[in-house]
Design a protein around this nucleic acid. Structure first.
Lengths: 131, 131
DNA sequence: CTGGATCCTCACCGATACTG
DNA sequence: CAGTATCGGTGAGGATCCAG
């Protein structure tokens, strides 16, 4: 089998975690990827990240940044000032990952129209022959 | 700003849909990516796809394949035989997309250990100074 | 400013049963 | 074999309040 991941027995503990799922399930969530892209160009503060994305709750941003930091993609720097100041930037690992993601972003921008067109022109197969 | 996507006003209709979100939110769901990877090497039948992934319900496989077909990534071919036979394969668009995803998969396999290690060695900042 | 704690809702998804 | 329909549990995530 040349699959990049093994089949998972339905009953098995999900902890099996093939690399593909383990890594991509994380950055595949609603916000992680956007956060990585936002802080990629330059180090940003919490509020700046929030503003750059726009629609993201404080809760989710905090949570997402924490996970990204935990996975080693993001470096969190705290300045013990008052009011507090916290900066976020990519680690080498984060930049390494993002290098593989950028082509994907470019692709999305380039082929977005094509996808939208496919959606519009799609005709669902007849569910069942009515009388 | 050199961001690959614009900020989204919190109150705004989500239909704004920048390409990045529109494309990646879809394939970023739990199953789409796995399905694409599974049918990439060769055309497969419904049951074969299901078996290859292992833990995926009939419902989600059906639903995922339908969406992928609608977005133009997957071609669905029905053979009017009995019992019915339906085959799924990638379209050119699907292969084009997958070409940008494969590097990501390779990266995941290559750096999985590094990520896992980062997670283990992570120490959360003290929540608050206890008495 | 930077979050943590709580509450609450809704969409996701699995299980099951049924059809062509 | 290849799905659709329905039901119900669960968890992601938004809103809000509070603290350092």
């Amino acid at each position: 089998m040349s699959l990049p991941f093994p089949p998972v027995a339905p009953g098995s503990d999900l902890a099996c975690k093939c690399p593909v799922r383990d890594v991509l399930d994380r950055i595949g969530d609603r916000w992680s990827l956007l956060v990585l892209l936002v802080i990629a160009p330059k180090t940003l503060r919490f509020t700046e990240v929030k503003r750059a994305i726009g629609d993201i709750s404080q809760r989710m941003l905090s949570q997402t940044l924490r996970t990204l930091e935990k996975d080693g993609y993001v470096l969190r720097t705290v300045y013990p000032t008052v009011p507090p100041k916290v900066e976020y930037c990519l680690t080498d690992l984060g930049r390494s990952l993002l290098a593989r993601i950028d082509p994907l972003v470019e692709w999305a921008n380039a082929h977005h129209d094509q996808v939208r067109q496919a959606r519009e022109s799609y005709v669902p197969p007849p569910a069942a022959t009515p009388l």
